[in-house]
Design a protein around this nucleic acid. Structure first.
Lengths: 242, 242
DNA sequence: GCCGGCCTATGTCATCCGACATAGCGACGG
DNA sequence: CCGTCGCTATGTCGGATGACATAGGCCGGC
């Protein structure tokens, strides 16, 4: 069923800037569809020329790039409230792909209205830019990991970052959250091989800072994880949601 | 001396979207200063709360993050016409630093006017967003390198990317351009050690696809470099310049 | 004119990480 | 029931990369 922005259960969460009824109505006018896609669906394809702009309403997704010989790099993970497809919408050709990790729901924000939006609702334009800048900051951090952290530190930094983001969204209960990533996803996000990821995860599990198993992440000592990974950035919140 | 936008020698280059006199006047009204900084100057500091927004007018610069133990990752290089500091301006605290590689000139675009700008000149707001998205696409590509390319491929991809960008700016002459990077910068940008970067550069030089020496990059075979690096993205041009 | 700092270069050795092989387990379908 | 597929796990081995040491060139300062 269609979810109207006025009745959106996501945007009222404390992670997000609370908007006036009028502002919500503007967003609702922009939103043209509410899509449901199964896990694994690719909703933006590399090279696609007519990719749209989306807000992830529920579930997890990721953006990725790959080399022609098949090596794949996950650029960042998206959680509910995240905007996906801004680059693709502005450049007229997507330089990356985007895939659902779980069954997801997407709010479709037609890109042909994007220019118009800036004209008519500058406040919304500003927030789009803000969300684009946040997306870049996530990639910045991942580049720091891939370039300068060792394997165990990379995994710990990923855990710390995702945990903090999930926490602002209220997805954490008793230090645990659903983590719909396979070890292959973790490897692809961190620039590691699958086998090495597996072995490093086993070693980390023995350290008892956190553990990943059966699709759940349990963090026993967030401070310890953050210190080990040298990951000290809090998630940016409250933030706009469109 | 101050450079007025109406007399800006940079924005008339073919890399950039050509603007009407009226549009240029808007930008000129935004620009509040024209700064000159020596090579090595850090014009955005990590954690800085009042970092401004800049357009790089001349010279080279880079953005970086670092871990507390000193390991440094260069996130991307900036060439003339690039916008630097959008994240910092929007978040109220910078998550990265920015440093001049050469003597540089910067156009200062006061961030306190940024919100106002979106309201009054939505077209400019749109272009700011476009430039932010382009900056993210550069980081995306660098993350692909750090995560999934081998050392020699990384260097080749860096060369291909910088060469293509320099070419659209008219900085290439006879297949060569000034490259103000030390091997330490290359290492920090690619997630390699200095020594390994040096040895890999020597091996690449022997292959004669390109060579870096004495502050110059000479590309003998761009196709070959691109193929070896699996780097096939052209620079986005013409693009807005603010 | 000498010293020190920065950059590049090169050798040796240690380590991290990747490649390949194998195996167990659960889900799913014929 | 059985075969396949996706995911996790573990061992062995080799290769890519990092760490440490040393050296030479260049340049600027005193």
């Amino acid at each position: 069923m269609y979810v109207r922005c006025a009745a959106c259960p996501l945007r009222v969460r404390p992670a997000f800037v609370q908007k006036s009824d009028e502002e919500v109505a503007l967003i609702e006018a922009w939103k043209s569809d509410h899509l449901r896609l199964p896990a694994g669906a690719e909703f933006i394809r590399p090279e696609q020329t007519d990719a749209e702009l989306f807000t992830l309403f529920s579930g997890w997704a990721f953006r990725y790039k790959e080399l022609i010989d098949g090596r794949r790099q996950i650029l960042n993970f998206a959680l509910p409230g995240d905007l996906i497809g801004l680059q693709s919408s502005m450049f007229g050709k997507s330089l990356y792909g985007a895939v659902a990790l779980t069954d997801i729901e997407l709010c479709l924000l037609p890109r042909r209205k994007l220019g118009n939006l800036f004209e008519r609702y500058p406040e919304l334009g500003y927030e789009v830019t803000w969300l684009g800048a946040r997306s870049e900051s996530l990639v910045d951090e991942n580049l720091l990991s891939a370039g300068r952290r060792g394997a165990a530190e990379r995994i710990a930094a990923l855990v710390a970052g995702l945990y903090k983001r999930a926490e602002t969204l209220g997805l954490v209960e008793d230090g645990a959250l659903e983590l719909p990533l396979t070890q292959q996803h973790i490897a692809d996000a961190l620039g590691l091989s699958l086998v090495h990821t597996n072995k490093t995860l086993a070693r980390l599990r023995a350290q008892k800072l956190f553990s990943i198993s059966e699709g759940r992440l349990v963090v026993h000592n967030l401070r310890g994880v953050s210190r080990f990974a040298q990951h000290f950035e809090d998630d940016l919140a409250p933030r706009p949601m469109i």
